[in-house]
Simulated scan of single mutants.
Amino acid sequence: MGYLRWISIAVVVTTLVMVVLVAGSGWATLSDQIGAGVTLVAFLLTWFIVGIRAFNSKITALVYIGILVVIVGTGVAFLPSMAILQAIAYPLVWIITERTRNAIIGNVAVALSVGVGFVIHNGTSAEALLYSGTIVGLSIIFSLALGLWITQISRLSDQRQTLVDELRSTRDELSAISRDAGISSERKRLAREIHDTIAQDLTGLVLVAQRAKRELDNNQIAAAAEQLELIEDSARAALAETRALVAASAPVGLTGEGITSALERLAERYSRETQLTVTVDAQALPAIARETEVVVLRCAQEALANVRKHAEATTATIVVTADGVGLTLSVRDNGGGFDPAVTHTGFGLEGMSERLGLVNGRLDIDSSGTGTTVRAIIPRDVLA
């Protein structure tokens, strides 16, 4: 414990100062000086033999305080100037004792021992008793006030340290939670991106490969060659999307030409892969932030993927409009429709809802009549 070193230094320095004072007390008798000197030696040795160990044992602390009371009183009985030992005795009492009540008792005991020492040295005359009583009273008042003040400061310091430790623990817990949440969020993001890009590209490759196989079986070489060319184009697109995903950059479908051109290329690609007629109406759109363009493109991709896998439709229309409320992406098909209230497996609609939730948007599905209309609505304040 580092503070023990400083207390030991204080004890040694106090002892040396008192030795100088005792040695310079020319008015005192030799026997008083020797007695005071022996008392100082006892004071110093007692600290290093018993006092240092008092912090680890209540009984040892009680024994040391008792010895300290006797030493201080004895020293004052030899020389009144030995009362200066109170300057170190009171702090030792307050530091060693754990309970405030015990510290107060020890404090009063030291003050009374000083008073007894004065009486032994000065006698019992009225003047001597008044002098001794005044010294003892003032010592008790100021030592108790100082001790209680220091105790209160120490208590507040301990409370603050406890709060700091709790705050650090809470900060570490929040850091771990934030890290876990970040990992979970990144996993969800990657799952959405893989589903909306690579998984759909691979699904398209499977469908085109099956079509090419049928045409080869029917000996339609020219048509099969066209399908193989489409497979190559789709594979290149999937590779480009994969590289963009690894690099965490913008989707390859988005270029400087904006979302309208990206949607038109998407429609053309789906028309080639599925023989589904896809049209786009997305003119006169305001400036849109790149993050919002990504959301619109991914929602359109997922909606067309659902049309290809489930709708059995022949046509699909992508319509993007913007007004004072926000931007709306609508994807309509002329397929058989479905019941939105029925629980469906798969990641598509849920992934679209989560992606829209990132921009405070929402997903609406209308499949009450012929075909299905999927609407992705994005509020105006997140467009730019």
Rank of each mutant, 00 (worst) to 15 (best):
V342P: 00
V307M: 00
G346E: 12
G335R: 07
V307D: 00
V319Q: 09
S261Q: 09
I288W: 02
A311N: 03
L297F: 07
R269P: 01
P286Y: 06
A250T: 15
A289F: 12
T314N: 11
L327M: 13
P251A: 05
Q301G: 04
Q275P: 02
V294Y: 05
V294C: 15
R265L: 10
G258D: 10
A305K: 13
R269N: 00
F338N: 10
L329A: 11
F347I: 14
T343K: 09
E273K: 05
T279L: 01
E268P: 01
F347D: 02
Q301H: 06
L245K: 08
V295G: 00
G337W: 07
I259T: 06
G337Q: 05
G256F: 07
V278K: 01
E350W: 13
A244W: 03
D281P: 06
R290Q: 09
T279Y: 04
A300W: 06
A303I: 10
L356A: 08
A287C: 12
A316K: 03
A300M: 12
V359P: 01
V307E: 01
P340N: 13
P286T: 02
T314C: 00
V295E: 02
L297S: 05
R355S: 06
I288C: 11
G326S: 13
R308P: 07
E268N: 05
A238E: 07
G336H: 11
E293K: 00
V320F: 06
S234P: 05
N306Y: 06
L254H: 06
A322K: 03
L297E: 04
L263A: 14
L327H: 03
A287K: 15
E241F: 08
V320N: 02
A238L: 11
R298C: 03
N306A: 07
R243P: 12
A305Y: 10
V325I: 14
A311E: 04
E312H: 14
R272D: 13
E302G: 14
A287T: 15
L349P: 12
L230D: 10
G258W: 04
A289M: 10
D339C: 03
E293F: 09
T279D: 01
T317S: 11
S249A: 11
E293L: 05
F338R: 15
F338K: 14
S330N: 15
A262H: 13
L356H: 08
R308M: 01
V342H: 03
T279E: 08
V319W: 04
E354M: 12
G351T: 00
A289Y: 07
T343R: 08
V278G: 00
